[in-house]
Simulated scan of single mutants.
Amino acid sequence: MTQNTVSLSPSPQSMALAISNPGSLGTIDAYIAAVNQMPMLTAEQETALALRYREREDLDAARDLVLSHLRLVVAVARQYLGYGLPHADLIQEGNVGLMKAVKRFDPSRGVRLVSFAIHWIKAEIHEYVIRNWRMVKVATTKAQRKLFFNLRSMKQSGDTLTPDEIEHISHALNVREQDVREMEMRMTGREMALDGRDDEDDYAPSAWLSDEGAEEPTQVLERRARDELQSTGITRALDVLDPRSRRIIEARWLPEGDSATLQELANEFGVSAERIRQIESRALGKMRGELAQAA
């Protein structure tokens, strides 16, 4: 079989770096502009490259498959900007999913890579959103995750769901109506100031919350244990980390200002953003173990 060659521009070396490092081309806009210049593959070119990788483990062929589909990751990642997470990090996670898809892609099944890869890309981005979204345990079951990623688009307005809308969404997603109500409450809840503002006529929560001094002894002990864990437990957990891991955790999770992105830390340590993500994941695992022992 004659192998088709694929000419890609910009240079493969610079774009290969961009796979794991969206900021390597400058701003995120520059990265997006660069990947949109990558030519699309024909079905014959895609099949030839996929066979070269599967049969001969040709990494150059795998790279060309990934580079030609980076624009797909950008398009998918854009759909998740409403969760308040950095665009570059969303793209980075999507690129991981794309590379996993290329590794598992079988051209003999008669499916184009774009159709196969989109599921892997979304899966990686979903996991990233779930791990990092500010609502604790917002979606821990399969039904809750399905609602988390579909409820916004299925709501016909910004108002509270009506009983008919709840029933429709419940049937469409094959989940319980109770799950729909609960997820809507989690996603539409807003923060409220404890003392309110001076110009507000309404009572603030501090006016009607129960007196903390009226707690039962068991509640007092539980609160003290929780406060101890929050004040000293985190410090002890950080102490088990090496300096680089501690710097990454503090910059990502305990910043004094805005949290650092994977790319910013990658530039600081001279490694890829994917390497920073791996270090962060392992460090969080160590801290959870230390906090579990402290509890």
Score class of each variant (00 low, 15 high):
1 M>R: 12
5 T>K: 15
7 S>Q: 07
11 S>G: 12
12 P>T: 12
15 M>T: 01
18 A>E: 11
19 I>L: 03
20 S>K: 13
26 G>Y: 08
29 D>I: 05
30 A>T: 09
31 Y>G: 01
34 A>D: 09
35 V>I: 13
37 Q>R: 11
38 M>G: 02
40 M>R: 15
43 A>S: 14
44 E>V: 14
44 E>A: 15
44 E>K: 14
45 Q>E: 15
46 E>A: 10
47 T>E: 13
50 A>I: 02
50 A>W: 05
51 L>Y: 13
53 Y>L: 02
53 Y>D: 00
56 R>N: 12
60 D>S: 15
64 D>V: 07
72 L>D: 11
75 A>H: 07
78 R>N: 11
79 Q>N: 10
80 Y>G: 04
82 G>L: 05
82 G>Y: 05
83 Y>E: 01
83 Y>I: 00
87 H>S: 12
94 G>F: 10
98 L>R: 06
106 D>S: 05
108 S>Y: 13
109 R>E: 15
109 R>F: 05
111 V>F: 14
114 V>G: 04
117 A>Q: 08
118 I>K: 15
120 W>Q: 08
127 E>L: 11
130 I>S: 03
132 N>C: 05
137 K>W: 08
139 A>Q: 09
139 A>M: 09
145 R>S: 03
147 L>N: 00
148 F>C: 01
149 F>P: 00
149 F>V: 08
153 S>P: 00
153 S>T: 14
154 M>C: 02
154 M>Q: 07
157 S>I: 06
157 S>P: 08
161 L>I: 01
162 T>L: 06
163 P>T: 02
164 D>M: 06
165 E>V: 06
166 I>K: 04
167 E>P: 00
168 H>K: 09
168 H>N: 03
169 I>G: 00
187 M>C: 07
189 G>M: 07
189 G>K: 08
191 E>T: 11
196 G>L: 01
198 D>T: 15
205 P>M: 14
208 W>D: 04
212 E>K: 07
212 E>D: 13
216 E>N: 05
220 V>F: 13
222 E>W: 10
223 R>C: 01
225 A>H: 11
226 R>H: 14
227 D>F: 10
227 D>C: 09
228 E>Q: 09
229 L>D: 04
231 S>T: 10
235 T>P: 05
240 V>N: 04
240 V>C: 11
246 R>E: 12
248 I>Y: 03
250 E>Y: 10
252 R>G: 01
256 E>Q: 14
256 E>R: 10
257 G>Q: 14
259 S>Y: 04
260 A>Q: 08
263 Q>N: 09
269 F>Y: 13
270 G>P: 03
271 V>K: 04
271 V>P: 01
274 E>I: 08
275 R>D: 15
278 Q>D: 15
283 A>N: 04
283 A>G: 04
283 A>V: 03
286 K>N: 08
290 E>W: 06
291 L>M: 09
